[in-house]
Design a protein around this nucleic acid. Structure first.
Lengths: 223, 223
DNA sequence: CTTGTTATTATACATATGATTAATTTAACG
DNA sequence: CGTTAAATTAATCATATGTATAATAACAAG
């Protein structure tokens, strides 16, 4: 019996490539299912079915359902955090004292692009929004594990760009920002409802620009 | 056999008061459960158990689980929308041309107070955030049914206060706003994680003020 | 080819859940 | 009191689900 415990999540070095494939296929389908139905609403049978794979394989690779969800979130979340990290590095390298707009864009763009990279990218955005609305303790730990470090770096960068704003206010506003873009990205397709369709005039890039403008002004606001 | 169909949600006129009590007890406990575990995660048995009531009673009063959730949401959501409506009426009556800050405060204060009115008020905020992260079609309809009208009134008021900003931009920014405050209210207790505890200096009223400042600046931002 | 390990499947288990029905209690009313 | 309808409960049903185990297939090494 293979020890398919929680530790089996970490890839063992010499694994053949074929099996890596199925592993990722399962993750992809789990991502879609969790995004659409939520953690409790999604079923392992459905996920395995979508992936054309026996259900027991989910357990073999990931352990429990909760472990599968975590793997799902950590995969793309890690990628996202890394992307943000690099973006900030490049920005600071190019411009030692960047504008607020540039900092915010460096933070927002990766997720924005992910949203429009395909169905799974969009699904991950929905997954994040769900996780944010989840009061359970474990969900909080997950988010912190993935995002806290990079968020704190961005807070520092914003503090440098806005010396007149105290740090705790910047932190608070950064929390505002996360809520804004997460729910907004997730809700994008439905904004028409509020605007009687007037939103159609904005393209996707326009919308990102509008978001940055809105958030930058909020960041700059005098206390 | 009583026709306990979906129609039984609407209160019949001459119903005795004792049963109204149980109806509300169930709703209260359902609110707590749905907020904590989500729609799929919460169980009718658990809800009935918390309410010290037989499980079949949930069906008798509300029909299906989905109907119970709807009743749960509509009850407090309607109250909230009404409160916002009245707030805007009073504001416009007192000041024909109010400031952006006053309009936003009229919109935000009712939910803010609800959050701190007790466990069920806080639960409803969590419920809203969950519903907002829910991509399902029915969830969208629910939200629109409860909130759209009042949001549109506030958009009009903001248009009057900000004649230099086109209406579709105001609408877009109003959508930003909803994401911001919903997520932020839901996450309030955890903001410390991002701020290394620096947030403790802000009281609850302070925090509301910070939010209004942030959002007002965003609303005013030049396109 | 043989062997041993990993990957994959088929199958069964125990249980929790939403729905449902029938029986029982409560209360209003004549 | 006696009757009738509403409120409440007890008990059952069918099923979907996460977990678990054992059997089989694929495959690399010797």
């Amino acid at each position: 019996m293979a020890t398919a415990s929680k530790l089996s999540q970490s890839r063992k070095p010499g694994r053949p490539s074929k099996s890596e494939d199925l592993r990722d296929v399962i993750l992809d389908q789990a991502e879609l299912a969790f995004a659409e139905f939520g953690f409790e609403g999604a079923s392992l049978r459905d996920i395995a079915g979508r992936a054309n794979v026996n259900q027991a394989l989910t357990r073999y690779y990931f352990g429990s359902k909760a472990d599968l969800f975590d793997a799902c979130f950590l995969r793309r979340g890690g990628f996202l955090a890394g992307h943000r990290h690099v973006n900030l590095d490049r920005l600071l390298e190019k411009t030692p004292h960047p504008e607020v707009e540039d900092i915010l864009l460096a933070y927002l763009k990766p997720q924005w692009d992910m949203k429009y990279s395909g169905p799974n990218g969009a699904a991950f955005v929905a997954l994040q929004a769900r996780l944010h609305a989840e009061p359970e303790e474990h969900a909080l730990r997950l988010r912190r594990e993935v995002y806290d470090a990079s968020v704190k770096r961005y807070i520092s960068a914003l503090c440098d760009a806005l010396p007149q704003i105290p740090r705790d206010l910047i932190s608070t506003r950064m929390a505002f920002l996360v809520g804004t873009y997460l729910f907004m990205l997730n809700d994008l397709g439905r904004l028409d409802d509020l605007t009687d369709g007037h939103l159609n005039g904005f393209g996707k890039e326009d919308m990102l620009h509008q978001l940055v403008t809105f958030l930058s002004a909020g960041m700059r606001a005098a206390p």
